[in-house]
Design a protein around this nucleic acid. Structure first.
Length: 193
DNA sequence: CCGCTGATAATCT
DNA sequence: GATTATCAGCGGA
């Protein structure tokens, strides 16, 4: 038995977020390799689950291995992978390197540049066709496919984006130097100033 | 490259 | 009424 993605869901959510970088996500065969994630959990003031269960966040309090999809700023959809050892934990998918169904993604996004297809949580949901209809859907069944890594990628850590609380927690993970990130990763301070 | 700002709706005060 | 796990378009450097 090789390592299945499901085996990762019981890890602490910060480790799950790290482990999902390099995995592949497809929706109806469209998607690519996850290159940027962030971890959230119920003890984290920046998390949607911090205030306790709500109608919108029900999926985050539900079973691991399912999607938590919510609307952001009234306009965009954002997708999380529910899982982690903590209560109501999930990993926000922030960027994907598109590999499968490029034409479908370009059509949905109204763009040509592969760099901009999935570079951001709202963008990747638009490109893969993820909406609130998939909130709570299991990731091991159609239309989803969440596939394990074939090799361990290089990964760097940083602060999460777009939050106003717990801003210093280093719970953002990304492939260093990837051209498909939502925003560049802040590299370590230059040696010698 | 950078910063500013409007769009738009669920949630919270 | 304010805030929010965002994005695109714009203008200036």
């Amino acid at each position: 038995m090789t390592t299945a993605v499901a085996d990762l869901f019981t890890l602490p959510v910060v480790e799950l977020a790290r482990a999902l970088v390099g995995c592949r996500l497809l929706v109806d065969g469209v998607g690519g390799t996850i290159v940027e994630t962030e971890a959230y959990h119920a003890g984290d003031p920046a998390s949607h689950s911090f205030a306790g269960p709500r109608p919108r966040t029900a999926a985050m309090f539900g079973a691991a291995g399912h999607a938590y999809v919510y609307r952001s700023y009234g306009l965009h959809w954002c997708m999380n992978v529910v899982g982690g050892a903590e209560t109501a934990a999930a990993v926000l998918l922030r960027a994907i390197e598109p590999t499968d169904g490029m034409e479908r993604m370009a059509a949905r996004r109204g763009l040509d540049d592969p760099r901009l297809l999935c570079a951001g949580p709202g963008r990747l949901c638009q490109a893969l066709g993820i909406t609130g209809a998939l909130d709570g859907a299991p990731l091991d069944a159609a239309p989803f496919a969440l596939l394990p890594r074939t090799a361990a990628p290089a990964i760097v850590t940083g602060s999460r984006i777009g939050i106003t609380k717990a801003m210093d927690e280093p719970w953002r993970f990304a492939v260093p130097g990837s051209r498909f990130l939502s925003r560049p990763m802040r590299i370590g301070r230059p040696a010698g100033g």
